[in-house]
Design a protein around this nucleic acid. Structure first.
Length: 588
RNA sequence: GCGCCCGUAGCUCAACCGGAUAGAGCAACGGCCUUCUAAGCCGUAGGCUGCAGGUUCGAGUCCUGCCGGGCGUGCCA
């Protein structure tokens, strides 16, 4: 519809150019906007304001000339000039009402872009270290990433969702060692658990499973395990040195193969848990990409070689490290990619990972990161550019943390201490639907306070129920219709849409007509909260309408028209909720 | 110190590419169930958009400088 009006204006401007009112070299960007106030019509354009200066005319006068030059349109009722020179467009009722038929004909597909683009986009999100269950901070990234992916798909883009599994590195070794120590306890050993180890209850569970499966196979005397290990922090030592020594000891005493078994027991168990957790949250992936595979496939070495060939890698003779010259691309300092001892850094893996993404043929790669990663953007983009790819093809969206409160008390979240609130606990408390919705109601870059007490005590007031209730109400009307011995005659309803003359009905229809536009903007700008807010407004319009007018009335024409409109509203609510990963119940 | 994000009603947040009188929900107050689900509706009240300048027909939105908050500034992952 906006396009239609833009065409009308364009044609009018052409006429003005022919009449030499406007100079042909003025190339205006024609903007058609939704009006905020319905007294301003359905759509408005500010062309006259923007053209006033180059045309050397006063805006209202110009607006007058433009409206006079507008071609006839079957869909327009009238235009008005208002304020400083806005042109307001009023649609006629028949053309707005046509959206109702469109909704019912297209059903679940209403609002979706029918033509698939050739563009291939990858969205990578969550990617939390598999060292423990997901906590509430990850939940926001999960809900946001999943919804952005679904919205892009709705906009006709081919989307792959990916989870980057950090299954290499020191943290994973700390996890493996933590599992082993708990396992030793299961074997009856007594030991003092390192303060830097993972202390969550899930480590005990993994250790118990390991023991159930392998018996005492990995058992070693605790005295030998801790022999000559430097003191832990509570005993005056350094906790990092202490845990590293224990990792080395675990490797040495178990041998590579058995250490791997313990390591994988932890990794597999946690990864399975994360996968299940996300699955129950309605978040699914096409790929789970292993960091370790980048090393075994040689991609890490190949990435470093490529950068070396291009001259962006140098060796510091003092420390013996290989450095990537990221300062050439605006970074604050150069970054180490390979240590003197031959170990590659996490950053090296990340370079290889992004190289790998582009080699897989993605036109655009969207990374959804926690806000704590923002310092990382520059160096990753630097690496992409150095590899010869356009850094614009990487889009990073930062998601601010959800800060958890229990009443006034701010909850600390630490995976290591095991005192965090998990996503699963949160879902159990407030439900997946409410979580999914709540997480995307705010802009991603906006800080979010999540008060558990409030979420629990006022769960009935959660906006998600408000929207679901509107959906359930329509379903209820349909049931009552049936009980009253009537049937819904859709064709009669569509034929009598002109009977819907009240303001409430017109407002509702207008709201429905905005849905495709909202969907498109929401998806392309990666801002799902726009859709969430729209659904709240749509539900509100419906509730208002429902309370003001009875649908199940004797007048068959009006009854069918109203039920038809309600069905269209239900359909759009269902479509929107579907995209947000929220259910649309028929009963509440 | 430097970099990024944020600052809007008592609280939590909106405001589409700079548009017209800055909007919702919660909390507060007052109404509406004999009637399709009251998890709802209607109404009242609540604002110097952190402060000060600038850009222009027009600024919550863009620019500069302050103030306040968050995060980052590892050869960690």
């Amino acid at each position: 519809m906006k396009e239609h009006i833009a065409e009308l204006i364009e044609s009018a401007l052409k006429t003005l150019v022919e009449n030499e009112v406007l100079s042909p070299d003025v190339q205006p960007r024609i903007m058609v906007e939704n009006t905020r106030d319905k007294s301003h019509g359905d759509f408005a354009s500010n062309v006259a304001l923007t053209l006033a200066k180059p045309a050397k005319r006063n805006p209202r006068e110009l607006a007058q000339m433009i409206t006079e030059a507008l071609p006839e349109s079957a869909q327009l009722d009238r235009t008005e000039i208002a304020g400083p020179g806005f042109i307001n467009f009023f649609m006629n009722q028949a053309s707005t009402a046509a959206v109702v038929e469109q909704v019912l004909t297209q059903g679940a597909a209403f609002g979706l872009v029918e033509k698939k683009s050739d563009e291939k986009v990858q969205v990578e999100f969550v990617s939390a270290n598999p060292t423990g269950p997901l906590h509430v901070g990850h939940g926001r990234g999960a809900a946001y990433g999943a919804t952005v992916s679904d919205l892009l798909e709705a906009a006709g883009v081919n989307v792959d969702r990916e989870y980057y599994v950090n299954d290499a590195g020191r943290q994973m070794n700390i996890l493996a060692t933590s599992v082993w120590l708990r396992y030793l306890e299961k074997c009856g050993q007594e030991l003092i658990f390192p303060c830097n180890g993972y202390k969550g209850a899930y480590i005990h569970d993994i250790a118990a499973e390991l023991h159930a499966e392998h018996g005492d196979k990995f058992n070693r005397p605790a005295t030998e395990v801790f022999a000559d290990i430097p003191d832990d922090e509570p005993f005056g030592g350094d906790k990092e040195i202490h845990i590293d020594a224990l990792i080395d000891r675990a490797n040495a005493m178990l041998g590579e193969a058995d250490y791997r078994i313990v390591f994988d027991a932890g990794l597999d168990s946690i990864l399975t848990d994360i996968r299940d957790d996300l699955g129950e949250f309605g978040v699914n992936y096409q790929n789970w990409f292993s960091e370790r595979s980048l090393t075994s496939s040689g991609d890490v070495d190949r990435a470093i070689e490529t950068l070396t060939e291009k001259g962006f890698i140098y060796k510091d003779e003092n420390d013996g490290n290989l450095w990537f010259r990221s300062t050439d691309f605006g970074d604050d300092k150069d970054r180490v990619v390979k240590r003197a001892n031959g170990q590659t850094t996490y950053f090296a893996s990340d370079i290889a990972y992004h190289m790998n993404k582009f080699e897989r043929g993605y036109d655009k790669v969207i990374n959804i990161w926690g806000a704590d990663h923002h310092g990382y953007i520059t160096r990753v983009k630097a690496a992409i550019q150095a590899l010869g790819y356009d850094p614009e093809r990487l889009v990073v969206r930062l998601v601010q943390f959800a800060i958890l409160y229990r009443g006034e008390e701010r909850l600390a979240m630490s995976t290591r201490s095991g005192s965090f609130v998990t996503l699963r606990e949160l879902r159990d408390e407030v439900g997946s639907d409410a979580c999914r919705f709540f997480y995307v109601t705010r802009k991603a870059e906006q800080h979010m306070d999540f008060d558990l007490e409030l979420a629990k005590s006022e769960s009935k007031d959660n906006p998600v129920y408000y929207i679901q209730y509107a959906h359930a109400r329509v379903c209820s009307v349909m049931r009552k219709l049936d009980e009253a011995g009537w049937t819904w005659d859709k064709d009669a309803g569509l034929a009598n849409l002109d009977r819907l003359e009240t303001e409430h009905e017109k407002d509702l229809i207008t709201k429905l007509s905005k849905y495709p536009d909202v969907l498109k903007n929401s998806g392309l700008s990666h801002e799902p909260h726009m859709l969430a807010n729209y659904l709240k407004e749509l539900a509100s319009d419906f509730h208002t309408y429902y309370n003001a007018h009875k649908m199940l009335i004797d007048d068959a024409e009006l009854r069918n028209a109203r039920v038809t409109l309600s069905e269209a509203a239900r359909q759009v609510i269902a479509n929107g909720l579907q995209l947000l990963g929220v259910s649309a119940p028929e009963h509440m």
